[in-house]
């Protein structure tokens, strides 16, 4: 994790340059205890778009800090988690969510693995059935051995 983080920081420095980016001081937003809890619950589900495997809760990328501030102010305005996620997906797309929504474009993603397991099971069951059937068929249709041929084999 620490390696990942330092790599990410390195990337950030490369992308944004070590100096230069202006940070505007914004007024602090006071939240109630209940709002803080909602914010804490929401942030880990949101992706930092600069360090793509970090959530907004973890990331210290400038954009992540900006987005965290936006989310904080939306929470302060009393917006619901769904509304806040909409605010972000309207701008950044579903990628900003760590848990993609269940809709026609993501059916394959959500159902695919289960469908594959089911398919595998079906193939397995068919395979087992057909070998068993073949064994049964072989046992019932086997011709009694020809005594003359047997004797010939034993004599050899």
């Amino acid at each position: 994790m620490s390696l990942l983080r330092s790599l990410c920081l390195l990337l950030l420095v490369a992308a944004f340059g070590a100096q230069g980016q202006v940070t505007v001081e914004k007024p602090a937003i006071e939240l109630t205890v209940e709002q803080e809890a909602r914010l804490a619950e929401l942030l880990p589900d949101l992706r930092c778009l600069v360090c793509q495997n970090e959530s907004l809760a973890e990331s210290r990328a400038p954009l992540a800090l900006d987005l965290k501030y936006e989310v904080r102010s939306l929470v302060a305005q009393g917006k619901s988690a769904t509304e806040i996620k909409h605010y972000l997906t309207d701008r950044y797309g579903d990628f900003v969510l760590f848990r993609p929504p269940f809709d026609p474009r993501t059916w394959l993603l959500w159902i695919g693995p289960f469908a594959l397991v089911l398919l595998g099971l079906l193939v397995l069951v068919r395979q087992i059935r057909s070998t068993r059937r073949a064994a049964v068929r072989a046992a019932t249709t086997a011709k009694p051995a020809d005594p003359a041929a047997l004797k010939k084999l034993l004599d050899e």
Binding site: V22, D66, R91
Partner: peptide
């Protein structure tokens, strides 16, 4: 866009 707000509205991430 000094504070980057317009950037956020336009979905700018880098």
């Amino acid at each position: 866009d000094l504070d980057g707000r317009t950037g956020i509205d336009w979905g700018v991430y880098g």
